[in-house]
Design a protein around this nucleic acid. Sequence first.
DNA 1: CGAATCGTTGATTCAACTCAACGCGAGTGG
DNA 2: CCACTCGCGTTGAGTTGAATCAACGATTCG
Lengths: 243, 243
Amino acid sequence: MADGEAILTAFAKRLERRFPLTVDDFQAIVALPCSRREIEPNQYLMREGDRPKFCSFLISGLLFRHKIVADGGRQIVSVHTPGDLVDLQNILLGEADHNVQALTAAGVAQIPHELVMDLAFSHPNIGKALWRESMIEASVFREWVANVGRRDARARTAHMMCELATRREAAGLGRRETYELPMTQEQIGDALGLTAVHVNRTLKSLQDEGLIVRSKRSVAISDWERLRVVGDFTSNYLHLGRG
Amino acid sequence: MADGEAILTAFAKRLERRFPLTVDDFQAIVALPCSRREIEPNQYLMREGDRPKFCSFLISGLLFRHKIVADGGRQIVSVHTPGDLVDLQNILLGEADHNVQALTAAGVAQIPHELVMDLAFSHPNIGKALWRESMIEASVFREWVANVGRRDARARTAHMMCELATRREAAGLGRRETYELPMTQEQIGDALGLTAVHVNRTLKSLQDEGLIVRSKRSVAISDWERLRVVGDFTSNYLHLGRG
DNA sequence: CGAATCGTTGATTCAACTCAACGCGAGTGG
DNA sequence: CCACTCGCGTTGAGTTGAATCAACGATTCG
């Protein structure tokens, strides 16, 4: 575990953004054991019904979480960028209620549930950071309910572009104006409750109006402010500050 | 605070369903100070942008939480029945990202944030129960994303009927087969991402097929199993067991 | 009794879906 | 090296589920 320390330091810094940590808290995190795991594109990290024993911290690549409904339709409920904790909820929930799958090749660090739990209660700042992390995630889900429930295809799509850009930037992964998104149009549709065909048309219309620029499997935001307005996006629900 | 003890006992029992508590945990909860507050129908308990200082435990009546989007549309993101903790997330999030409003006349018990937080870390079982509570809530949000994103009006409506019935029953508020729901069709629409007119037609079609029976402002489930199938409902995401 | 709110129903429109065809680049194997 | 497939993006034509618009009925309440 040569680079384990670097990974755990990144993990500690992420938590530090959620709640102030002491030097002691930092040291306790860096002392955790963790095993690195590489995942291929489309591979499942977790399936509905599983009882995972580890918590996964995303190091590189993108993951997404999704549910399957009766008619075979798929709904993506979140997209994860490096620095995210992917399955914190299973610390306390037991049986997984959805799937986690790789969007691209990805690397995760896995930490045993019981160690994360022990840390949360032996070091309250860490506990608060982790709890806050899961509450922010819940806030994002609420916004997604509103997004698919009450915005049309244009606004919905613009909103997701803004959210992903903002989260990437907040995670220190580059400026929001030029980020790229390696999702297929079908995957974007499954995240937005639209069909791939309609996503294609919607993206085209956003491009024709000069809000975004597309190339292959990526999207770059060319007019942030107008995209933000079209997507009815404000970052308050991401709770990027410390409260 | 004559009946404060009874209320706090109910609160403790609710948490006990989420994670096993000791006698000491119970006593610590019952020793909390709490102030009761009565709310009129449609009154706001919290608004987006507020910084609440209390945690609200719903004693009687129904509350709902919602977001407003750019075009004025409203999306209800959850409906609360007695026994629910309505704004636990603001313990750690600071600024509210949505509104909480009364559906009917309601009574809540309010407990200061800092006392709930202290209890969570001085009594880890209580902390785990509270954390688990917020993770279950997040799971319900995920299911709602899938519901509004990938199910048609019939399934969506049936699903919500099943969920509310199941949660009511799990909270000990009566059998799921005969529960009643005092929401207007407009409110149901705002929870499902539909218009009131279409909710009216959808409910009518569910009734015509013998799945539900409507009277005034309420709905009774007459064929649970078929409604469950139509709504693609399973209770796994409610995590009713202890994990 | 009148006003307000909510539920009901019909007619019409529209946003998004479905179906289908074709383009295009990346592999891949003969 | 080319032909082939495969996955994905693109575009058009036609359909449909849900929205919109509008009117009217039922119930409650001051």
